[in-house]
Design a protein around this nucleic acid. Structure first.
Lengths: 210, 210
DNA sequence: AATAATTTGTTGCTTTTGCAACAGAAAAAA
DNA sequence: TTTTTTCTGTTGCAAAAGCAACAAATTATT
């Protein structure tokens, strides 16, 4: 989910970048990072898209979060208390900025623009995450696959302010995001189409209701 | 979930309380507050326990969050982007502290201890919420009722550092929290018992595995 | 351009979950 | 203490979701 407006400030601050900040590129399917307890890492996705995924003991894959340009991620936003490892996987070519810190409030010696901006924006970034997480919970607590799909479509629709949109996920990934079986989800998509609620061509969806 | 250690500072700060802060008591089943877009309210549960609940169009009740002594709640922690109204309901006698603000960073004229403490603790409070929400998502993404139950029990168990504990919920409420049908959950609890994974007397659970 | 890999769409069958209903236990209110 | 209300435990049946498997389409890779 996008908070690009604020994050652009970060990118600008990087022109004369802090020496503690690293930039790296990744190609499709590479692991950008994993979440490690006790390490504090903050990452900014400068380009591309990536998913935060978890594999459980039964081999189920769950997409915990989906990141696109200028999204921020890292342990700050997911204090790990789980058994399962979390990975951030590149969905395509990605450019990522890394910042590892001991104390997020501590500035570097030169007190550069990056740290200044970070301190200023962090509360807002975190509140953004909270909104995100709450939306996610709202979706996941829906009782049926149909309700989850419709809930998700409404979200996308109100975000892009249009009833016609391309999914930011492949359908396979969408199933992992909604935490349901893919084939069951496909079946439900077909039913939604047959019932005249949506139109669907590939991964382009048009909402016909309301 | 409990973050009492920090919140005690708030309570102390209230000895010479800020005039913008209100204290009220509630009895069982009373609505403590609802979440309103554009209003900024921060509440601290000084005593008792309460649930943040949502009712959807199908009449399903979902417990979004469960609060106990010294937990903090309010719109800050749930920027509302939903159609469904959210209520905080008292589960018993409750004592609650309310603080409505325009700008959370703005201090009152007297710059009292309350505001000082608030500014200091807020980032930590919010990060605490984030952890909470992530745990919740971890539970909700589990694919079966059994996995949700076991996941929840593990959570409680590691929080209280014991394999034997009383549930902070009635079983009816637990089902609403895990977002599953109550009778199906009861069936699964019985199976867990029959399979020798847990012991259960009333709402006291003992984990027999690991 | 050809080949390989992944994703989509579909289906039959099985398992899990939800729904409805009810009796007994426990808790709250009168 | 008695009555009322809520919660627990259980069940049969219906509906929804998961699993497995495969062909067709699409997308990457060589």
């Amino acid at each position: 989910m996008n908070i690009s407006f604020d994050i652009k400030q970060f990118v600008e601050a990087l022109e004369n970048s802090c020496h503690k900040v690293r930039k790296r590129t990744f190609s499709k399917n590479e692991v950008i990072t994993n979440y490690i307890e006790k390490r504090n890492q903050l990452c900014i996705l400068l380009d591309g898209s990536a998913d935060l995924v978890r594999y459980d003991l039964n081999g189920n894959r769950t997409i915990i979060d989906h990141f696109s340009k200028y999204d921020v991620f890292g342990e700050v936003f997911y204090i790990v208390s789980t058994n399962n490892e979390l990975f951030v996987e590149a969905k395509g070519k990605c450019e990522v900025l890394f910042y590892i810190y001991d104390d997020i409030k501590k500035k570097c010696k030169t007190n550069c623009k990056f740290h200044e901006t970070l301190t200023e924006l962090l509360p807002e970034l975190i509140l953004n995450k909270v909104t995100n997480l709450n939306m996610r919970i709202e979706l996941l607590t829906k009782r049926s696959i149909r309700d989850k799909l419709v809930g998700y479509f409404n979200l996308i629709s109100s975000m892009y302010l249009t009833k016609s949109f391309s999914l930011p996920f492949s359908l396979t990934d969408l199933a992992d995001y909604l935490s349901v079986d893919r084939s069951a989800m496909m079946r439900e998509l077909k039913l939604l189409k047959d019932d005249g609620f949506i139109e669907k061509t590939g991964n382009k969806i048009t909402l016909l209701y309301k």
